[in-house]
């Protein structure tokens, strides 16, 4: 794609433009989102997972919202019906992976080494390490954080997030992107609703404001309340993913 002299040359995406600026200095137009590479990698990963019939669920939340406890409940509810594997992402520890492996499913710990999120490349590495070729459902427990993980597509089929009652019902307004990218929002710790100024109806309204499509499921991972509805959602989505092949 080279025109006369250096007028137009091909950049990464095949559309870069190069112009004379000063005598020796040239400007090469790139016009590319920083997230573009990651988005492409994520799409490729999703395609491969589709071929293999693996449903990858990206589970996000802030620290302390009950991701691991919810996951343990989910495994308990589904392990006779689906082959499950788990990737635990943490900045630096493996307490969660031990807890999950104790529940009898394949689990690996991914250390992000200080990074606040996972991207598609790291997710792919994790899947390779997990050797999850047989799994129906792989859950990626992302780093506890409501900002960064929302920006990077991991290659997951669906995104889920947990908002716990003590965090407050206004979180969808404060972290809009997180709620926009999630297909399902679990509202956890509903057993403590009487002790907090958490308005469940307001919360639903705020989530819908950011994302009218999102499914909202109130749960209590500690007592198991609502876990059936959550497990049904997963079963439905896994079946749809496999049927769509």
């Amino acid at each position: 794609m080279q025109n006369n002299s250096i007028d137009v040359i091909c950049a990464a995406a095949g559309s870069g433009r190069m112009e004379h600026f000063m005598k020796e200095v040239k400007i090469l137009e790139i016009k590319k989102s920083v997230f573009e590479d990651n988005d492409r990698e994520a799409d490729a990963l999703r395609g491969e997972l589709h071929e293999k019939g693996i449903f990858l669920l990206n589970l996000m939340s802030s620290p302390g919202s009950g991701k691991t406890t919810t996951l343990l409940r989910t495994i308990e509810a589904l392990k006779d019906r689906l082959k499950i594997a788990v990737m635990e992402a943490d900045i630096d520890s493996d307490v969660d992976a031990h807890a999950i492996a104790g529940a009898g499913v394949k689990a690996i710990q991914l250390h992000t080494g200080g990074m606040c999120h996972l991207d598609a490349g790291m997710t792919r590495q994790g899947l390779e390490g997990l050797e999850a070729a047989e799994a129906d459902l792989v859950v990626l427990e992302n780093v506890g954080n409501l900002v960064c993980p929302a920006e990077f597509d991991t290659g997951a089929v669906k995104n889920a997030m947990i908002l716990s009652v003590p965090e407050g019902h206004d979180k969808p307004l404060k972290y809009p992107l997180m709620f926009e990218v999630c297909d399902v929002v679990l509202i956890n710790k509903i057993d403590v609703l009487p002790y907090f100024d958490f308005d469940l109806e307001k919360c639903r309204e705020y989530v819908r404001m950011r994302n009218p499509e999102a499914e909202i499921i109130p749960i209590c991972a500690k007592t198991g309340e609502g876990i059936d509805a959550w497990a049904d959602w997963i079963l439905r989505e896994v079946a749809a993913w496999k049927a769509d092949k």
Partner: peptide, 24 residues
């Protein structure tokens, strides 16, 4: 909050452009 990884993504993209265009 994830400035470093954004920087890594930028560098990766530009190195790719550099290679394709034989930039020094």
């Amino acid at each position: 909050m994830h400035e470093l990884s954004i920087v890594f993504h930028i560098i990766k993209t530009i190195e790719q452009v550099g290679e394709e265009n034989k930039l020094e």
